[in-house]
Structure formats: structure tokens, C-alpha cells
Design a binder for these strands. Structure first.
Length: 427
RNA sequence: GGAGGCGUCGCCUAGUCUGGUCUAUGGCGCCCGCCUGCUAAGCGGGUUUGGGGUUUAGAGCCCCAUCGAGGGUUCAAAUCCCUCCGCCUCCGCCA
């Protein structure tokens, strides 16, 4: 949720942001008119209420007949107070629901437009030329089956499409990647976390996952709980309704958890293998900081993500995601996309968003205002350290050899029992 | 799953039975000031959060809400009733 005060002070900026996102700038005016009605009604309610309270004191002191007379007199005042309160409440609700429909105000410099209007900030490494090496690369599923590492057929038998078993090497790779990601995150000062993956509606809504992409989320009807698609949700909720002390610096967490996504509306997209699945594992970084530190923290998250991808020796590029593809809570987002040889394309592996005060405002996460009295909303940011499935794809495909074996990047070797090369069982 | 108890402005706590004098008591902690070789003690003041109004803005001042959350009863609710959430104790069950 954006700051109502900022919207009142500079509605044009919010309209421009909505425009850049390709969303309706008219909501801004819906908020403004509801806000005006709210304030008018509130003033009426408050003065009536003050009158009623003063009356209450007189009633308390009065006796007998005099008291009865006062009671008769104040009765319709009570009714008026009730009506005015309801009126203010309704206007407030209209204001809030319109306000919630507005995405975070995008940062200056964010590319305008939709999914394809990203700007490439940097390309790192060079994709291998398999033709020059004299063999055609196998895709990740072929390699996974060769190594008895990935079983999508049995995943479908047991759970349905987009489920899979990781076995043997596949399972070891997932564990290795998560352990590596946690080690790096801890070295970088992130507190390791094992979060809940079932959360209440307030946590899900607070993190911003029930707005545009509500149908992406698994819901447990019987218990009114949601399965989280990322530990960002639990980490954002961690400090809900708290006043944080950030005087010693930002709070940085790294949580590893299973993630669940319905992938609704992606039928026919990335159906082969484990590129787009309903369940995977992810180590997610999350930062609480002062607003003025948010951009530096964002740069830091990107740096850590790049450190990890560099260590995995994958060719990748960094893109500045366009406004229309940001998602509601983010004011800016960088994606790191790894080269997938058999797709001949860069695909998203990790992603980091600066949500400024958008999530924290809704979740009630504040700090003492260092510039004066009172409290103010903190900023939150998130970034993927690593997931399980897509990095496995990227590693298998990019580091494969003609005989189907896979070279292990040095940084990952300690997590795989020191193996330098992974060989298929019967090769 | 069953039975019972509890939730008050950082922490502890009075108030709830018997609705109005609660503008929520007191202590601790913290902040400011006074006093003082230094420190401590002592003395005085301040110390929930959100919103509205006033204001160029801030400070200040005025007002409203806030006693776990939401509803209800009432002229009036921390106090009575209902629902929900959380914590604790006991019983049952169970990795």
C-alpha cells in the first residue's frame, strides 16, 4: 500500500507511475474523492461524539427527574453519532480499497512498458558454442534421466502435472545448492531462518500476494491458511505490527523453504522437465531497512545474487525489469537470467525487488523516526539467493560434456562430497 | 480433541464481580531538568499508538479513537453479552 499522504501531496506522480505500469491512473482520483468524503464525515462524527461525551458526564451527576430529562434529550444525539460514524467508516473503506489497488510508485529510471521492455544492464560470461565443440547439448530432462536424477513421469503419477521427483544426484544437487546459498548468505551477514510455509490471510495479503496474482496461490479452505509461494511472505510477516530498532543497521534474513505455486494460466508454457513446477525449494534473502538505505540494500542484494551465479560459473545477464512487469509491491526489480543452451535463451534464475515502504505499511512495520518524534514505516527488500530447480537445469545444461557427464563448479564441490565431475550411472 | 484460567499505554501492575467521579492506578525502566568534588541517592517534569483540525511547514494547541481483534447491549463499556485470535494449566492422542 502506498502512502496516502504522498498521494495527497503529489497525485500527479502516482498517476504517472500507474501509467508507466500500464494500469489505471483514475484510481488516484477515486482515492482522493473518498478521502475528502471521509474527512468531512469524520469531522462531523468527532464533534458529535465530543458533545455526547460531555453529556455523559452531566447524566452521571444528575439525579431523578433531571436525569430522565437529560436521557430523553441525548437519545437522538446517540443515533446521530452512530450514523455519522458509519458514514465515515464507509468512506474510509472505499478509500482503502482504492488505495490498495494502486501499485508501488516506480523508481525514476525504471523502464516504461511491459514484459518485453526490460533493459539489459550487463551480460556476464559467454554461452558455450556446442557446435564448435562437436556435439549437440542434451536438455536438462534428458540429462536428468540419464543420471537418474529427475523423474517427472512418476511425479505426475503421484501428484499430477508439474510435479517431479529429484532422486540420487538430483536430490544431492538440491541439498548442495541450498547449503551453498545459506553459507554465502551467512557470510554476507544474513540470519538463517526456517520459516512457516502455511500463513494466515493477513500475512499473505500484507506481502501483496492476494492482489493481482491471488489465483497463483494455494489455499487450504478448511483452515483458512495459504501455502506460501516464497518465504518472502513469512519473512515480511515476521515483524508485522512491530516497531523495529534499526539504529544498529538493517535486519537481514535468509530463509530456506519449500515454495508452492499454482502456475495458473501458464498451461502449455514450459511444460517439459522441471522449469516451471508447482513445488520447489528456495533460499530467499529479506531485508528491513530505513527508507534512505533501501537503494543501497537493493544494490547489495544484487551483488550477493551475482556472487552466487558467478560461483556457479553460469553465463547470465542482469535486467532492469520494466514497470508493467514489476508486480504491485516492487518499485524496482532486477532479474538475473541464466543462459539455457537448449532454449537458446536467458531465463530468470534469481530476482531482487525493492518494495520501499509498500509491504511494511500494510504490515505495520515501523521504526522510531530518527529525524524527529513519532514513528515511520520501514522499507523492505527481497532477493533470491538460489532456488532448487532452475539452477539445476542451468548447471546440468551448461556444464555437460559430450558423454553426458557434468562438470561441477569448484564452489559447489565441497557440497557434493568433493566430486569434480558427475558421471551417469552406466556411462 | 476435552476442561479451566488469562490478555490493561516498553516491562510488571490497580481497576472488571457491583457500567458513569477512568482524562486508566502505582512501581520499574527510559528521557529532560534541578541539586551535587565524581558517581549514586534525592526532587520536579515527561514517557501507547493512530487519525482529524489549526499552521506556508514544523513546533505548539484543540479534538476523536485506542484496555488482544471484531461485533452487540446502553444515554454511557476496560467493566455486561457474542464471535474470533493468542498465551498458560490439566486430561486425552501423537510423530
Amino acid at each position: 500500500m502506498i502512502d496516502l499522504r504522498e498521494l495527497r501531496d503529489d497525485p500527479e506522480r502516482v498517476r504517472a507511475s500507474q501509467q508507466a505500469r500500464g494500469e489505471d491512473p483514475g484510481v488516484v482520483d477515486v482515492v482522493l474523492s473518498a478521502d475528502e468524503r471521509y474527512r468531512a464525515a469524520l469531522a462531523g462524527f468527532e464533534s458529535a461524539r465530543a458533545e455526547q461525551k460531555a453529556f455523559g458526564k452531566k447524566v452521571a451527576q444528575a439525579q431523578g427527574e433531571q436525569k430522565q430529562a437529560l436521557l430523553a434529550e441525548v437519545k437522538d444525539l446517540a443515533a446521530r453519532v452512530k450514523a455519522l460514524e458509519a458514514e465515515a467508516g464507509q468512506a474510509e473503506q472505499e478509500r482503502e480499497s482504492a488505495l490498495r489497488r494502486i501499485g508501488n510508485v516506480v523508481k525514476d529510471g525504471v523502464p516504461v512498458g511491459g514484459e518485453d521492455d526490460y533493459v539489459v544492464l550487463e551480460e556476464v560470461g559467454t554461452p558455450r558454442d556446442f557446435a564448435a565443440e562437436g556435439f549437440a547439448p542434451r536438455d536438462h530432462l534428458e540429462l536428468g534421466e540419464l543420471h537418474h536424477a529427475i523423474d517427472t513421469a512418476r511425479g505426475a503419477k503421484v501428484s499430477g502435472a508439474r510435479f517431479y521427483y529429484l532422486m540420487g544426484l538430483g536430490a544431492r544437487l538440491e541439498h548442495a545448492l541450498m547449503a551453498f546459498a545459506q553459507h554465502v548468505a551467512q557470510e554476507e551477514g544474513f540470519v538463517p531462518v526456517v520459516p512457516p510455509t502455511l500463513v494466515r490471510p493477513e500475512a499473505m495479503a500484507g506481502a501483496g500476494f492476494l492482489d493481482a496474482h491471488a489465483d497463483e496461490v494455494y489455499r487450504l479452505e478448511a483452515d483458512d491458511l495459504y501455502l506460501t509461494g516464497t518465504s518472502e511472505v513469512a519473512l515480511a510477516g515476521l515483524h508485522a505490527d512491530e516497531i523495529l530498532d534499526l539504529s544498529a543497521g538493517s535486519l537481514r534474513y535468509a530463509a530456506t523453504s519449500t515454495c508452492y505455486r499454482r502456475e495458473a494460466g501458464s498451461y502449455g508454457k514450459d511444460t517439459r522437465g522441471i522449469f516451471r513446477v508447482h513445488q520447489f525449494t528456495k533460499t530467499e534473502m529479506f531485508v528491513y531497512c530505513r527508507v534512505e538505505d533501501a537503494e543501497a540494500e537493493h544494490a547489495n542484494l544484487l551483488r550477493v545474487e551475482r556472487r552466487i551465479l558467478d560461483a556457479l560459473e553460469l553465463p547470465y545477464r542482469v535486467i532492469d525489469v520494466a514497470a508493467g512487469d514489476l508486480g504491485g509491491p516492487a518499485a524496482r526489480k532486477y532479474d538475473c537470467e541464466a543462459w539455457i543452451p537448449t532454449q537458446g535463451a536467458y531465463r530468470e534464475l534469481t530476482s531482487t525487488s525493492n518494495c520501499t515502504t509498500y509491504q511494511a505499511r500494510r504490515l505495520g512495520t515501523r521504526e522510531r523516526d530518527p529525524n524527529g518524534s513519532g514513528t515511520r514505516t520501514v522499507a523492505t527488500l527481497n532477493g533470491t539467493a538460489l532456488t532448487s530447480t532452475r539452477p539445476i537445469i542451468a548447471l546440468l545444461e551448461n556444464h555437460q560434456q559430450a558423454d553426458g557427464s557434468v562438470v561441477v563448479p569448484e564452489a559447489l564441490q565441497p557440497y557434493l562430497g568433493g566430486s569434480k565431475v558427475l558421471r551417469p550411472p552406466h556411462a
